[in-house]
Amino acid sequence: MESALAELLKTALAEIPTAADEAALEELRLKYLGKKGSLTAVSAGMRDVPPDRKAAVGAALNETRIGITAALETRKAEQIAAKDAKDAEGIDLTLPGRPVSPGALHPLTQVLDRAVGILRRMGFALATGPEVETEWHCFDALNTPGDHPARHESDTFYFDSGHLLRTHTSSVQVRTMETQAPPLRIIAPGSAFRRDEIDATHLSAFTQLEGLYVAENVSLAQLKGTLEAFFRALFGESTEVRFRPHFFPFTEPSYEVDVKLSPKGQEPRWVEILGCGMVDPAVFQAICDARGDEVYHPDKVTGFAFGMGLERLAMIQWGIPDIRHLIENDVRFLGQFV
């Protein structure tokens, strides 16, 4: 009987791999393993096997069944694989896809959003103010002398009403302090305007990001720490930052801040990015006078303020050589910042 089993296995293993399709394979399964199949027929001889041989013959019978079943499964897997391969025939994954217009945010928006994101994580809320401003909000309240050159018609745009296009977003500081009591921790992104001819480095309208923190005991040390943390978040943990004393009418002491950067294709160098300082007491006094209360009294609160130009930041970050690219909106330019 064992020889009959061996012969059966041999025949089955030769025949199963030739099954052409699913139906032929099922036919073979029935032929060997079905109720009327060959293995069933052979196993009927178990009755005649002497008792001492039953265990050995039983094992041989089982092995034959396992062998045939495995062969059937292997062939089945082969057939599925072949069918799938046929379905995928001719598909070239390296072909270009269906074309889509990618679209992109303007690079200035991207720079602004990064800077705003960092400062919001540091606990600054956004604030806004009008772009058409009064001379008081833009200059007087910010301790700018009456005959300061910035007020001149040759430097600043005016309207018939006597109002002007704000020359900096610092006017938002004034607007916010007028209506909100301290403590105050705000950033104000927005447009500012100077009466400049447009050329490779100048726009008559540009984008600034202003910051102001007013509370009891705000210190220069905090200004330094805040801006250092900001620039490290923006340009990387190892970014070097330096503060140079400077002069602005609305802060004292005042600083310009340089960051060591490598503009495209250049050696690292100090790039002036930002102006800042401790809010001048005269500004707080002007706010008190306008509010008619003392919550911003210069003896009660101190504050720091900073402002930076975002076009410059974008130009440095991406190595853009001409500021006019930022207002021309050529898709070949915009498409580079997706």
């Binding site: 604030a127 905090q222 720490g225 805040t226």
Partner: peptide, 23 residues
């Protein structure tokens, strides 16, 4: 010299403003 002044930061909760929502 500002180099001799320490750098400190302080965080504090600041509620979102209308400008935040609009942004």
């Amino acid at each position: 010299g500002i180099a001799n002044i320490p750098a400190t930061t302080d965080g504090q909760f600041v509620p979102a403003s209308a400008a935040d929502s609009f942004y």
